[in-house]
């Protein structure tokens, strides 16, 4: 997870689309939440958010709370939904990114009193579209990794 954050932070400036970075780390967390459900997803979100807060933040809480809640809501919302076609994955990641942006905005207002957001609606939709574009790739990768670990470490006899 930590390696992915570092990978994302070094490589993302080179694959910007219209000034927005695809957030591979967020896509990974959302994919885990969709595959594994709200409990496991939120724990991954919490751990990833804390690492991000420590490495790039100035206090603990902003990324950890946002990612924890985003992963929980996404996992909970998609728990009983059919997840087969790629279009569904794109829609889930798109919605998940919108939820993340909204929660980030709320948590920012809570934690940073002088926070002044920029052109919100455009930014919300644009980041969600960029993440949705990359979602099938990351989702498939996460799915295969999770499947691999489930097969080797979680086989019930």
């Amino acid at each position: 997870m930590s390696f992915l954050i570092i990978f994302q932070s070094t490589i993302s400036p080179y694959i910007k689309i219209g000034g927005v970075n695809p957030d591979f780390f967020l896509i990974m967390l959302l994919s885990i939440s969709i595959i594994k459900g709200p409990e496991r997803g939120s724990l991954y979100g919490l751990a990833g958010g804390i690492i991000e807060d420590i490495i790039y933040g100035r206090f603990i809480g902003l990324n950890s709370l946002t990612k924890f809640l985003t992963c929980y809501i996404t996992g909970w919302g998609t728990k009983n939904l059919f997840k087969g076609p790629v279009l569904f994955t794109i829609a889930f990641i798109f919605t998940g990114t919108l939820i993340y942006n909204l929660l980030y905005l709320i948590v920012n207002f809570m934690f940073i009193p002088f926070f002044e957001p920029r052109n919100i609606v455009l930014f919300f939709v644009y980041t969600a579209i960029v993440n949705a574009i990359f979602s099938p790739l990351v989702y498939n990768l996460v799915y295969k990794i999770e499947h691999f670990f489930d097969y080797y470490f979680n086989v019930k006899y």
Binding site: I5, I6, Q8, S9, T10, S12, P13, V20, N21, D23, F24, F25, L26, E52, I55, Y56, G57, N63, Y104, N108, F123, T127
Partner: peptide, 13 residues
């Protein structure tokens, strides 16, 4: 050597 991976804030290391 590093950048904030998200789109919300801009911090580099």
């Amino acid at each position: 050597i590093g950048r904030d991976p998200g789109n919300w804030s801009n911090i580099v290391i």
